[in-house]
């Protein structure tokens, strides 16, 4: 999976969670800092991502995720491990 393709797919998944936030979501957008997702919403987003990409995302790895791009990289890593 190409990183930019994953980012594009992820932006589509993140958008409904960021409803009401006047932010153009890019690779560099902060998931909690800019989109304001609380811990519950982050976990819902993780489930949506897991279903979409058919992967399991270890919750301990989320500590390193700040931006949409970070999450895309984690998705790629998880997909590689699941393959």
């Amino acid at each position: 999976m190409n990183h930019q393709d994953v980012v594009a797919q992820l932006i589509e998944l993140v958008t409904p969670f960021a409803e009401g936030r006047p932010v153009v979501i890019t690779e560099n957008t902060g998931i909690t800092s800019e989109l304001g997702l609380d811990s519950l919403k982050v976990m819902d987003l993780v489930v949506a991502v897991e279903d979409e990409f058919d992967i399991s995302v270890p919750i301990n790895a989320l500590a390193e995720v700040r931006t949409v791009g970070d999450f895309a990289s984690l998705i790629q890593k998880s997909a590689g491990e699941n393959a």
Partner: peptide
Amino acid sequence: GANTIRFRHNDADDLAKRMRR
């Protein structure tokens, strides 16, 4: 410090899917 994977609450099929991965 382990890799921690959540499965859907009380959902053995979801657990099995994640175990297969």
